[in-house]
């Protein structure tokens, strides 16, 4: 099975507090720790497990610049067979549709049975997988939390739906799936694994290689544009307890008692 997994390098929210910069034009990027998008990590693990079961090859692809290449190496250290970096000035500032159309061009350069994306990335959009599938005219399922390869070019796919329930589908290959967290337990990637793939050549493709016209993607092609960042103010907010830890705990115990929080 030829599997393509789309991955994105994002600020790691478990390592950073995300803050708006002074003029609201961006988040504060100094000292940010980046990692692979959590959902994509599950997607790569799933791809590796499928390959190990039925054979084939896992390719990880990202759209970005030289810095973003590190997530490809990380996922290759995890077990992906090869990486592909899609990089071009013209790609900068793409909206979700732009990203999906760049990925579409890359998919059409290869021959994949299964294309995986994460359910969503750092901006919480959850759009690229569904768009890519529609552009390729392939069957699609989102929020996938179980995959079982069957005979005859079909797979059984579980989707997460409300209330912890699961929707089971049968799909034909090739198809596009967006992976939800929790589908598997992603393996640990050590520094030694990353060193092993440090010198592997990762091919780079630009707009011309992919046959993409520069004005259809990037800032120029974007219908959705971000104007600014700001810190939301919702309602009154909590009453913040202050003082020494002892004082805070004393106050909190009183409050909990009065609200029926201690039986």
């Amino acid at each position: 099975m030829e599997i393509l997994v789309c991955v994105k390098r994002v600020p790691d929210t478990s390592e950073n507090e995300i803050e708006v910069n002074s003029d609201g034009s961006d988040i504060e990027r100094d000292d940010l720790v980046y990692s692979v998008n959590e959902w994509d990590n599950y997607a790569v693990e799933e791809a590796i497990q499928i390959r190990d079961k039925v054979g084939g090859c896992v390719t990880v692809v990202t759209i970005g610049d030289e810095e973003d290449e590190e997530v490809l190496r990380r996922q290759m250290a995890m077990g992906a067979d090869q990486g592909l970096l899609l990089s071009d000035e013209a790609f900068m500032g793409s909206d979700g549709r732009g990203i999906a159309s760049i990925l579409k061009a890359a998919v059409e350069k290869g021959k994949y049975d299964l294309i995986l994306t994460g359910a969503q990335a750092d901006d919480g959009a959850g759009q690229v997988g569904g768009m890519l599938a529609a552009m390729l005219d392939l069957p699609y399922a989102s929020l996938v939390n179980a995959i079982e390869v069957m005979d005859g070019g079909r797979i059984k796919v579980g989707r997460e739906i409300a209330g912890g329930n699961q929707e089971m589908n049968e799909m034909t290959l090739p198809c596009v799936l967006s992976i939800q967290t929790g589908i598997n337990e992603p393996r640990y990637v050590g520094i030694r694994g990353i060193r092993k793939v440090a010198s592997v050549e990762i091919p780079v493709m630009g707009a011309a290689d992919l046959g993409i016209s520069a004005d259809s993607v990037g800032e120029a092609g974007a219908k959705v544009k971000r104007l600014d960042y700001f810190v939301p103010v919702l309602g009154e907010g909590a009453e913040m307890l202050e003082g020494s830890t002892d004082e805070i705990i004393e106050k909190l115990v009183e409050i909990l008692k009065s609200k029926g929080g201690i039986k």
Binding site: G126, V128, A134, S142
Partner: peptide
């Protein structure tokens, strides 16, 4: 989330998520 991104492509419209 399952329906809408592809719908935007098929209707050839902009997509504004969430």
């Amino acid at each position: 989330m399952d329906l809408a991104p592809g719908l935007a492509i098929k209707l050839d419209t902009a997509y504004l998520p969430d």
